[in-house]
């Protein structure tokens, strides 16, 4: 009896040890990484969520904590303070930070076309040239990058502030819906889709005014990391980026549309299925405008133009030599 009890205990201990031995390496291998997004969980971050949900990060030996962004949360601050290892920031944020001595690098450019565009109703004349902006009631977010972009367009067209009516805007669309503002700034793939849908239900159609069509390529969201991370842990950077871009490629593949939408739906409670479907299509056009393009490609010329615009607008004091901060990880 005693011998039987001893054997049972020995069996249990052996099984527990085996489980422990088998389980330990798989957790020990996974390196914890914090990734701070720029905006809320919605279709704009489909690729980030896809990489996580489909286990691409895990396959790369990483345990990635994807943190939702907001206007008040800044990935660059978090990189410096050590709360995040990777983050998403817009080009103007990156350039401003470099101007103030931040030690960061851009390792991938997610949006090839800036989603910051302007929406206006089709019952108004189409903006075919920049001169067509004259006399319009245009909304800008004072202090936001849309203000910088619009100022650049005005400068390019020789338009002064007296030629247009500028109104400061926020997240509330009411002034646009009430026609107090004609041309309203939106993120083409998120708010743009929502507004387009809302107006379509009222029988109104819209146009989008894209500054890139008029030669202003102001870079949007890109993946960044700290100098320390890049120099001391390049293998983690490579693994992270590999898994992330694999996620983005998969999420933007029309064949994976259903899976991508299901993944986004779990976290984006604010929109319905139809909106999310349209948002995904709009996001695809901005992230992968043509099929041959590899997602994450850094367009150095667009970055240089962004820096030039910011210098001209006196948003930075000196050149930051942005090209030295762009690292296209293979």
């Amino acid at each position: 009896m005693i011998k039987h009890g001893f054997l049972v205990r020995r069996y249990i201990v052996t099984v527990l040890l085996a489980v422990l031995i088998l389980a330990t390496p798989c957790y020990a291998k996974e390196i914890k990484v914090n990734y701070r997004l720029k905006w809320l969980f919605n279709t704009s971050v489909a690729g980030d969520l896809y990489a996580d949900e489909q286990g691409y990060f895990k396959e790369a030996g990483l345990m990635v904590n994807i943190k939702e962004g907001s206007p008040e949360k800044n990935a660059i601050n978090e990189l410096e303070l050590g709360y995040a290892n990777f983050g998403v920031a817009s080009a103007d944020q990156v350039i401003r930070a470099l101007d103030k001595g931040a030690k960061i690098y851009v390792i991938a450019q997610l949006f090839q076309v800036n989603p910051m565009q302007w929406i206006y109703r089709t019952d108004q004349p189409e903006i075919k040239t920049l001169q067509d902006l004259r006399g319009r009631k245009i909304g800008v977010t004072f202090g936001g990058n849309d203000e910088t972009i619009m100022n650049t367009l005005f400068a390019k067209a020789g338009i002064t502030k007296n030629d247009v009516i500028i109104t400061g805007v926020r997240f509330d669309f009411t002034p646009f819906l009430k026609r107090k503002v004609d041309v309203w700034p939106v993120y083409r793939n998120s708010q743009g889709v929502i507004l387009e849908n809302k107006l379509a239900r009222e029988g109104e159609a819209v146009y989008f005014f894209n500054p890139a069509d008029f030669g202003v390529n102001f870079v949007a969201n890109s993946v960044i990391t700290s100098e320390t991370m890049l120099k001391k842990k390049p293998e983690i950077v490579e693994k992270f980026l590999g898994a992330l871009l694999k996620g983005w490629e998969a999420a933007m593949n029309p064949e994976n549309k259903k899976i991508a939408l299901e993944i986004v739906k779990k976290l984006d409670k604010g929109n319905n299925d139809e909106i999310r479907r349209h948002q995904l299509i709009a996001t695809r056009d901005l992230i992968k405008p043509f099929s041959a393009l590899k997602i994450g490609t850094i367009k150095a010329n667009a970055w240089k133009q962004t820096e030039h615009i910011m210098l001209k607008e006196k948003l930075i004091k000196k050149s930051v030599n942005i090209e030295t901060r762009l690292i296209q990880v293979k």
């Binding site: 660059i76 601050n77 410096e80 303070l81 050590g82 401003r96 101007d99 103030k100 001595g101 931040a102």
Partner: peptide, 14 residues
């Protein structure tokens, strides 16, 4: 202490 840039916490001159 944390060697932060002026972007995170500005120095006195800034």
């Amino acid at each position: 202490v944390l060697s932060l840039s002026d972007y995170v916490i500005p120095g006195v001159p800034l």
